[in-house]
Amino acid sequence: MKKLMVMMMMMVVMVVVSEASMVQQTCKETPNFSLCVSLLDSDPRGSSADTSGLALILVDKIKGLATKTLNEINSLYKKRPELKGALYECSRRYKAILNADVPEAIEAISKGVPKFGEDGVIDAGVEASACERGFNGKSPLTSLTKSMQNISNVTRAIVRMLL
C-alpha cells in the first residue's frame, strides 16, 4: 500500500514538472521569456494547455489589454481634450483589435489555421504602434502601447510554432 502511494505521488510530481516545463519550453522560443512565463503562469489554464491553448491564453491577454487601453482612452477624452484627434484614432485602432484581430486569431487558432491567427496577432501590435505614433512623441499611452507590442510579439512566436 505504501509503495502504491509513493508511486502515485511520484506520478503527480512528474505531471506537475512536465506541465511547468511545457510553459518554460514554449516560452524559451519567444522574444521575451520572462513576460511569456509571467502571462501564462497568471492563468490557471496555462498549466495544462498545449501550444494552441497557450496561444489562445495569450490572445485573451491581448484582448484584456486592448479593453484596458480603450477604457484609458475613454477616460483621457475628458482629462486631455487637446489630444482628442489622436485619442479618436487610438480608439478606432483598439476597437479594430477587439472587433477584428482578436476574433480572427481565436477562430484561426481554434480551427487549426495558425497563419491567419498570426496575422491577427501581428495586426494588434501594428495597431498599437500606429496609435502611439499619432501622438508625435507625447503619448499618455506609451506604457500600454509597449505592453501590447510585447504581448503581440510573444504571442506571434507561439502561434508560429503551430505553423
Results as ranks from 00 to 15, higher is better:
Ala105Asp: 09
Glu104Asp: 02
Leu70Phe: 05
Ala96His: 03
Leu65Met: 14
Tyr88Thr: 13
Pro103Val: 14
Pro81Leu: 03
Thr51Glu: 05
Tyr88Ile: 13
Arg80Tyr: 11
Gly64Gln: 11
Ala105Arg: 09
Pro103Met: 09
Ala49Ile: 05
Val102Gln: 12
Leu98Met: 04
Glu72Asn: 06
Tyr77Ile: 13
Ala100Arg: 07
Glu104Tyr: 02
Glu72His: 08
Glu82Pro: 04
Ser47Phe: 14
Arg80Trp: 08
Gly46Arg: 00
Lys63Met: 09
Glu89Phe: 11
Ser91Pro: 09
Ala66Lys: 00
Asp50Ser: 08
Lys68Glu: 13
Ala49Trp: 01
Gly53Thr: 01
Ala96Trp: 09
Ile97Gln: 03
Ala105Asn: 12
Ser48Asp: 13
Ser47His: 14
Lys61Cys: 07
Val59Asn: 00
Arg92Asn: 08
Asp50Glu: 10
Ala100Trp: 11
Leu98Tyr: 04
Ser42Arg: 05
Ile57Tyr: 00
Glu107Lys: 10
Lys78Arg: 03
Tyr94Ala: 13
Leu98Asn: 00
Asp101Lys: 00
Pro103Leu: 14
Gly85Thr: 15
Ala86Cys: 10
Leu83Glu: 07
Ala100Lys: 07
Glu89Thr: 05
Leu70Ala: 12
Asn71Trp: 05
Pro103Asp: 12
Glu89Leu: 12
Lys68Gly: 03
Gly85Ala: 11
Asp50Pro: 02
Val59Ala: 07
Ala105Met: 13
Gly53Leu: 05
Thr69Gly: 03
Lys84Phe: 09
Cys90Arg: 06
Pro44Cys: 12
Leu54Lys: 01
Gly64Asn: 12
Pro81Ser: 04
Leu54His: 01
Tyr94Gln: 05
Ile73Thr: 06
Lys79Asn: 13
Ile106Cys: 00
Ser75Met: 15
Gly53Ile: 04
Lys68Thr: 08
Leu83Val: 02
Ala96Gly: 06
Ala86Asp: 08
Asn99Ile: 14
Asp60Ala: 07
Asn99Met: 15
Ser42Pro: 04
Tyr77Arg: 10
Ile97His: 02
Leu65Gly: 08
Arg45Ala: 10
Ile97Glu: 03
Lys84Met: 05
Gly85Val: 08
Arg45Gln: 04
Asn99Val: 11
Asp41Tyr: 03
Lys79Arg: 10
Val59Glu: 05
Val102Met: 11
Ile106Tyr: 01
Thr69Ala: 06
Lys79Val: 12
Cys90Lys: 04
Ser48Trp: 04
Tyr77Phe: 15
Ile106Pro: 00
Pro44His: 10
Gly64Arg: 02
Lys84Ile: 12
Pro103Cys: 14
Pro44Met: 13
Lys84Ser: 07
Tyr94Gly: 08
Asp50Ile: 14
Ala55Thr: 12
Arg45Tyr: 00
Tyr88Trp: 14
Gly64Cys: 10
Gly85Lys: 08
Ser52Phe: 07
Ser42Lys: 05
Gly46Trp: 00
Ala96Ser: 06
Pro44Lys: 04
Pro103Thr: 10
Ser47Ala: 15
Ile97Thr: 07
Glu82Ser: 06
Arg92Leu: 07
Lys78His: 06
Ile106Leu: 09
Glu104Ser: 06
Asn74Thr: 10
Glu107Val: 13
Leu87Ile: 13
Glu104Ala: 09
Glu82Gln: 13
Leu54Arg: 01
Ala96Ile: 08
Pro103Lys: 06
Asp41Gly: 06
Ile97Tyr: 07
Asp60Gly: 13
Lys84Tyr: 02
Ser42Leu: 04
